[in-house]
Design a protein around this nucleic acid. Structure first.
Lengths: 145, 145
DNA sequence: AAAACACCCTGTTCCTACTTCAGGGTCAAG
DNA sequence: CTTGACCCTGAAGTAGGAACAGGGTGTTTT
């Protein structure tokens, strides 16, 4: 199949496929006489694997690692477990951080329900006061992450 | 104060300050005879405001909007409310998406507790099978977001 | 046959919010 | 007079592609 069909079947864009090839994630296919890329079902499986890992939030280096490990079935799979553990940890910390963030935003939003002018807007005053350094620990907290 | 001290007091890097100035977020300070930037407490307040908004997950365009609104205290503050509402919505959706992601990762991780080889690794097989299209809705789901 | 249209190619630039680097100037201390 | 800490500008790099420029190919329609 040609790149357009692979893109449709792999639910991604043509540019993304060429990008993966350039990055060495997707095996380079043979070319037709006219220079068009000619893909097989194996390429589709590879692409789906990559897209699935991406949908799980993995970065390209992690996926590269998995692809390399795939070709060495005799090795211990500890490395795969570690990789997943670190992914889980990363996602978990993101969630924790975002939950705190949502609370802060809701609290801020709650300070202005009435229709008023910017000069009287409690939200903006809260933002400015927090910026003055007192009473807002979130600033420094997020700084370190 | 010079840029190094502003950076220390604003808890960010010197480069970030110069970047904000180039982006028009932070007012350009006067220069000393030697060309060094000379900052005032007003600049520190501006920087803290920017950093605080950043720590709340806002992008530079949003912060630019707020900074512009600050200079028009007579306008209605509806726009500020809308801006915050959309921030909250964005963060909320991120959390929802990440929670689903964490569940998927944990489920995947749970399929391999034993020490085995990559050839037998249930995680990798799960990833490959999911990539084959059957039984994994998450792939297409994340695609649309 | 010519034109329109869909598809393909390479290569380059753009996006966020910075960080890092190259190459150099300034200033106080030892 | 040299060392080290600070400052300057401007360009390039980061992740993961998206978008565009400029051109070739293949089928269909006129």
């Amino acid at each position: 199949m040609k790149i357009g069909e692979l893109a449709k079947r792999g639910i991604c864009s043509v540019e993304t496929i060429r990008f993966y090839e350039k990055e060495g994630l997707l095996e380079a296919p043979t070319r037709n006489d006219n220079g068009y890329r000619q893909y097989t079902n194996s390429h589709l499986a590879q692409l789906n694997f990559i897209r699935h890992c991406r949908s799980l939030g993995m970065g390209l280096p992690e996926i590269r690692t998995l692809r390399t490990l795939q070709t060495h079935p005799e090795l211990a799979c500890d490395e795969i477990n570690h990789l997943l553990d670190s992914q889980i940890e990363r996602v978990h910390q993101q969630i924790t951080s975002l939950r705190l963030l949502e609370q802060q935003l809701r609290s801020l939003r709650g300070s202005c329900h009435a229709n008023t002018t910017i000069g009287n807007c409690a939200i903006l005053r809260n933002l400015e006061q927090a910026a003055d350094g007192e009473g807002c620990p979130c600033h420094a907290v997020h700084e370190k992450s």
